[in-house]
Measured scan of single mutants.
Amino acid sequence: MPVRRGHVAPQNTFLDTIIRKFEGQSRKFIIANARVENCAVIYCNDGFCELCGYSRAEVMQRPCTCDFLHGPRTQRRAAAQIAQALLGAEERKVEIAFYRKDGSCFLCLVDVVPVKNEDGAVIMFILNFEVVMEKDMVGSPAHDTNHRGPPTSWLAPGRAKTFRLKLPALLALTARESSVRSGGAGGAGAPGAVVVDVDLTPAAPSSESLALDEVTAMDNHVAGLGPAEERRALVGPGSPPRSAPGQLPSPRAHSLNPDASGSSCSLARTRSRESCASVRRASSADDIEAMRAGVLPPPPRHASTGAMHPLRSGLLNSTSDSDLVRYRTISKIPQITLNFVDLKGDPFLASPTSDREIIAPKIKERTHNVTEKVTQVLSLGADVLPEYKLQAPRIHRWTILHYSPFKAVWDWLILLLVIYTAVFTPYSAAFLLKETEEGPPATECGYACQPLAVVDLIVDIMFIVDILINFRTTYVNANEEVVSHPGRIAVHYFKGWFLIDMVAAIPFDLLI
C-alpha cells in the first residue's frame, strides 16, 4: 500500500533555474538572501570558489559584500557603492579590487542584480563577478574607477581610450546646418538635424578633445543650467548677453562664444560640459537660429522629431539603469545623424518603425519583477520565466494532490484497515475457520451469522477504491517536481505499489 509523501509542494524551481543557467555559462556568482541580516550568502558556485580561493563552506553565510576579499588596494568608495546597491532595488555595476585567499590582487567587475517577489519586494541578490585585470595590471588604489561605466561593446579594446569628441564640431553647429540641408533625401539625416562627426583615429590627448566618459557625465550638469543662461549661451556672438549692473557675465554663455574659444586653444572642462549641455537642449539648428531671432517656433511634425517616441515608452518600462547606459552608448555611435529632440514631445505622434532597438522591449506582467540581467542570462521568455513566489501546480481535472487534506485522511483510514487485516486475518484463519468446520452448517442466516465476513468484505472494497484513487494521485519525481499527468501517474504506480495493492485487495476469504 503506498505511503508516498512529498510535502515540499507547491515547489518553486526558480532558484534552481537560475543556478542551472548560470552554471551553463561558466559564470562566477553568488546568491544572497536579502531578508536576513547583512544579506548572507546562501549559494556560491564553483567558479566563484576558484576565483577567490575560498571553499564553499568558508563563503556560505558570510555577508555578500565580500568584505573578506578586501585588501589594501580595495577602494572604500567601491565598497560603499556595493553596500548601497544592496540597500536599493536597481541593478548596478561596480569595479573593485579584490584579494584572493593567497593574497593576489585582481580588479573585478561586480554586477549586483536584485530579484523581487510578486509584491515588488527584493528577496534575493545575485552578484556576478568578472575579472577585468590581474594584480600586475591593477593601478594605484588612489585612482577611482567606479565613477565610470563599463566599456562599450562596439569599441575595440585597444581603442576604448582613444575615443574623442571634438569640441569644434559642437561649436560649428550653425555652420554645418547648410551642408545638412543640402544633403536632402540623399543624406542619412532628416531636415533640421545636426550631424556630429566623431574622430576615432588614435591621437595624443589634446586640450581640444573630450573623453567619452566626460560626455556621459554632461547629463548630470544640465539641471544646474538655468533657462535664461541656456538661451544666452545659444544666442551666440551676435547678441551678447546682458548683465545687470554690478553683475558679471555668465561664464556659461561665454563658453560657447566662437570668438572667445578661437582665441585660446584650450577650454576648461567645466565650460566644455556646460556648452555641450546647452546645445543638447535645442532640438535642431533651426531652433538655434530661432533663439537668435527671439522667436522659438513649435517643433515640426516630421520623422526626426518622432524618433524618440518609442524611446520614451522603453525608458518607462525599463527595469534597470543598464538600459540608460545602453541608450547613452548607442546615442554616441560615430558617423550617424543625431536628432536633438526633447523627450517631452507630442504624445499624438505616431511611433516610426526603427531597425535598431535601443531599449529592451516591454516586459510582460509575469516578468515585471525580474531584472534585465536575470532575463538576459536565463534566456527565457515571458511565458517560461515565473515570478519568485509559491505557485500552485497546474493539475488535470479529477486529480488528487498527494499533500491535500483528503489524501491525508484517506491514508490514515487505509492504515487502520491494514492494521485490522494484519490482526484479524490470522485470527480468523486459526480459530474461526476451525469452529466453522466443526459446527453445523448455517446457510440460512447468511452474513448475519458471520459479522467478521462483512467487515472483511468492506475492507476489500476499500482497498479496491484505494487502488483507483492512487491512479489519480500526484507524486514527486526525482527532481522534486509534482507530477499531475494521468499517464505518468499510471506508469509510476504500475512500477511501484500496484502489484502489492492488488494482492492485498483480493478477497481470499470469499474465494475459499
Rank of each mutant, 00 (worst) to 15 (best):
P2N: 06
V3P: 07
G6Y: 14
P10D: 14
Q11R: 14
N12S: 07
F14E: 12
T17S: 07
T17G: 13
I19M: 06
I19Q: 03
E23A: 05
S26H: 15
F29E: 01
A32Q: 01
N33H: 07
N33M: 06
N33I: 05
A34I: 03
N38R: 14
V41Q: 01
V41K: 01
D46Q: 09
F48Q: 01
E50W: 01
E50S: 06
C52G: 01
R56F: 01
R56P: 09
A57F: 08
A57I: 07
E58S: 04
V59G: 01
C64F: 02
C64K: 01
D67L: 07
F68Y: 04
L69V: 01
H70F: 13
A78L: 03
A78F: 01
A79C: 08
A79Q: 10
A79V: 13
A80G: 10
I82Q: 01
L86M: 10
L87I: 08
E90F: 13
R92L: 07
D102Y: 01
S104P: 03
S104Q: 09
F106I: 05
C108P: 01
V112H: 01
V113G: 07
P114R: 04
V115M: 10
V115F: 13
E118T: 13
M124V: 12
F125E: 01
I126K: 01
L127P: 01
F129T: 01
E130M: 09
E130A: 09
V131C: 12
V132M: 07
V138Q: 14
V138S: 13
G139W: 06
S140T: 08
P141W: 06
P141H: 06
A142Y: 05
H143W: 14
D144K: 07
D144R: 06
H147V: 11
H147P: 03
R148S: 14
R148Q: 07
T152L: 06
W154H: 10
P157Y: 01
P157D: 13
R159K: 14
K161P: 08
T162F: 12
L167Q: 15
L167R: 05
T174I: 12
R176E: 06
E177I: 01
S178A: 14
S178E: 10
S178W: 03
S179V: 06
S179F: 15
V180F: 15
G183V: 06
G184K: 06
A185D: 14
A185I: 06
G186M: 05
G186F: 06
G187S: 15
G187R: 06
A188D: 06
A188Q: 11
A193Q: 06
V195E: 01
V196W: 01
D197H: 01
D197S: 01
D197R: 01
D199K: 01
T201K: 15
T201P: 15
A203S: 06
A204R: 15
A204I: 01
S206W: 05
E214A: 05
E214Y: 11
E214I: 05
V215D: 15
A217M: 05
M218R: 13
D219Q: 04
N220Q: 06
N220P: 13
H221I: 12
G224S: 14
G224L: 14
L225Y: 03
P227Q: 06
E230Q: 10
G236C: 04
R242M: 11
R242A: 10
A244M: 11
P245L: 11
R252D: 15
A253Q: 08
A253E: 15
L256P: 08
A260C: 13
L267E: 06
R269L: 11
R271Q: 13
R273K: 13
E274C: 04
E274R: 07
S275H: 09
C276Q: 14
S278M: 15
R280N: 05
R280H: 06
S284A: 12
A285L: 12
I288H: 05
A290F: 01
A290L: 03
A293L: 09
G294N: 15
V295H: 08
V295W: 13
L296K: 14
R301P: 10
H302W: 15
A303K: 12
S304R: 07
L311R: 14
R312V: 11
S313E: 07
L315F: 07
L316Q: 14
N317V: 07
S320M: 15
L324M: 14
R326A: 13
T329K: 06
I330M: 14
I330C: 14
P334V: 01
I336P: 11
L338N: 11
N339Y: 01
V341E: 03
K344W: 06
K344G: 14
D346C: 09
D346R: 08
P347V: 07
A350M: 13
A350K: 11
S351I: 14
S351Q: 15
P352Q: 07
S354H: 08
S354R: 05
I358F: 15
P361A: 05
P361Y: 01
E365K: 14
E365W: 15
R366N: 07
T367I: 14
T367H: 11
K373G: 04
K373D: 06
Q376K: 10
V377M: 09
L380K: 04
L380I: 04
L380A: 03
L385P: 10
L385A: 11
P386Q: 01
